[in-house]
């Protein structure tokens, strides 16, 4: 366990000043910033909006719309590929594998860093959602703070679901990124799968495509009953994640050339 924690610490340090770390910060505040601008541009509509008894639920859902369909999966694809690229780009796999660490420790420490970055994204994005709900009030003379109290449980539950839904993307992208030195391979594969998922959402068996879950969860959040799926997508996401991680670990461990 200590070996894992030390390795995790070391892996986390590698993300300092990387494109992936900036992507998380910029990506998490992008939508909230747009929401603030929209709010300020439509200041006259704010009183009605803020007096709604489900203001935060609505605000949360609007904030997640493009995030769930495009930005979150795309961000996960990019961040995962960029994290493994740190080793390829710097030619450091050989140095890393010549350190006294079990391959399992390296594998899971790196995966943990990606997951931690996603958690960081979720925290920052939710702070952004909250701020984008509050900041427009500062520019409105008529609107008041939402009458509804902040629904912590709702936020926690739905964030947890979105988080679980993007785990299969992390796992599959991680698998591909570890196998290919060329950054374009995991990126290309990710984009192709994401486009496929966009079409698959319309299909009644679309839920078998592991990149669809964030979007499907969004439909469920908005209670779009026509898009409801007959299975628990979160369980499916966990299943896919486990499967991809096992396959990825086997490929990684048995890779003949560890340079």
């Amino acid at each position: 366990m200590n070996d894992y924690l030390r390795s995790l610490q070391s892996e986390w340090m590698k993300t300092r000043n990387t494109a992936a770390s900036w992507l998380v910060i910029i990506g998490s505040f992008f939508i909230p910033l747009i929401m603030v601008i929209i709010g300020m541009a439509n200041a006259d509509k704010l009183p009605g909006k803020y007096s709604s008894p489900v203001f935060w639920q609505n605000h949360f859902a609007v904030s997640w719309q493009i995030m769930a369909f495009l930005l979150l999966p795309m961000g996960v694809i990019l961040a995962t590929s960029l994290i493994t690229q740190i080793e390829y780009r710097n030619n450091t796999w050989k140095q890393l594998h010549a350190t006294p660490q079990r391959f399992a420790v390296v594998f899971f420490a790196k995966l943990s860093v990606i997951i931690l970055m996603m958690l960081q994204f979720f925290v920052l994005f939710n702070i952004g959602i909250y701020l984008s709900g509050i900041i427009p009030l500062l520019f409105s003379k008529t609107a008041a703070y939402p009458v509804q109290g902040f629904p912590f449980v709702f936020f926690l539950k739905n964030n947890a679901q979105f988080f679980i839904d993007c785990l299969p993307i992390i796992a599959l992208q991680y698998l591909i990124s570890l196998q290919f030195r060329n950054f374009m391979v995991p990126l290309g594969a990710g984009i192709v799968l994401l486009v496929a998922a966009t079409f698959a959402i319309q299909w009644k068996y679309g839920y078998i495509v592991p990149y669809t879950y964030a979007a499907l969860n969004y439909f469920q959040l908005r209670s779009a009953t026509t898009q409801m799926v007959p299975v628990n997508i979160h369980l499916l996401a966990v299943g896919y994640f486990t499967l991809f991680i096992i396959v990825s670990f086997i490929f990684y461990t048995y890779k003949k050339d560890k340079c």
Binding site: R6, M13, K14, T99, Q101
Partner: peptide
């Protein structure tokens, strides 16, 4: 064992200290 295989294996986006620090964590 210490090693240097072919071209330098260093993290270009980090400083010399940081490169050594992350390995210091591993080697304790």
């Amino acid at each position: 064992t210490g090693s240097l295989i072919e071209s330098p294996s260093l993290y270009g986006h980090l400083t010399a200290d940081e490169n050594l620090l992350l390995l210091q964590k591993i080697y304790q």
